[in-house]
Write a protein that binds this DNA or RNA. Structure first.
Length: 222
DNA sequence: CCCTGATTCGC
DNA sequence: GCGAATCAGG
């Protein structure tokens, strides 16, 4: 697989939309998660929350052993780039002693990757502030806290549950963005109709239509 | 273990 | 340029 313009465009869109590298790789097909990350970096799209803390550039204490006999400090106009030399020093595990630490919280909500949206687009949540998608929506009448004519009768993010088709209509951030809301095809996240869009038999390349359906609406033309 | 992104480096 | 291997944190 090569990085065609379409695939690069999809990569950019999904990456900026906050999709994980794994999801992007799966959507693209034929590439690994690493390939996606590598390509994203080569494209210059880094800057996004990494689970790994970029260790604060430690002020390396320069052991001023002997007074430098060189009174001439002529550093060329070099930008202050703290040479990120990674030490490959492996420490041997010293303590065979184990402390019995109770492993808490196996709570992992397998909820789909629907992140909250805002007028500007996606808003990434930190795990601490994630909330389950409300209660399984008892069949009672919902009164919008903020009566909005546009959203009347629309299925919003908060209306989603296991039984509701999560097929997005419109684009996140747009005023009338909502979800299909039909009863799902049991075992799938979408209704029967949208399952037809989401799951398609692989066709021979020559009579396959170019636009591959992306679950979140696909790349947007800017 | 699983996941995540970042980085390196041989190709 | 590409991406597997590796690293490092959650």
């Amino acid at each position: 697989m090569s990085w065609t313009d379409e695939r690069i465009e999809t990569l950019k869109t999904m990456w900026e939309a906050g999709q994980t590298a794994s999801q992007i790789a799966e959507a693209l097909g034929g590439v690994s998660r690493n390939a996606v990350i590598g390509k994203a970096h080569r494209l210059g799209l880094q800057a996004r929350p990494s689970p790994v803390k970029p260790n604060e550039p430690e002020v390396k204490e320069q052991p001023v052993a002997a007074a430098p006999p060189e009174p001439a400090p002529p550093p060329p106009p070099a930008p202050a780039e703290p040479a990120p030399v990674r030490e490959v020093v492996r420490e041997a595990a010293p303590e065979p002693v184990r402390e019995t630490a109770p492993a808490p919280e196996p709570v992992r909500d397998p909820q789909p990757v629907l992140r909250s949206v805002g007028p500007g687009g996606f808003v990434r949540q930190s795990p601490g502030e994630q909330q389950p998608p409300s209660t399984p929506a008892p069949p009672r009448r919902l009164v919008p806290a903020k009566p909005n004519a546009d959203m009347a009768g629309k299925t919003t993010l908060l209306d989603l549950n296991d039984r509701i088709c999560k097929w997005p209509l419109g684009h996140p951030g747009e005023p009338d963005f909502h979800f299909c809301g039909q009863k799902v095809n049991p075992g799938f996240p979408y209704c029967v109709q949208h399952c037809g869009h989401a799951y398609q038999a692989q066709l021979p390349r020559r009579d396959r239509r170019p636009p591959p359906p992306l679950p979140f609406g696909g790349p947007r033309v800017r």
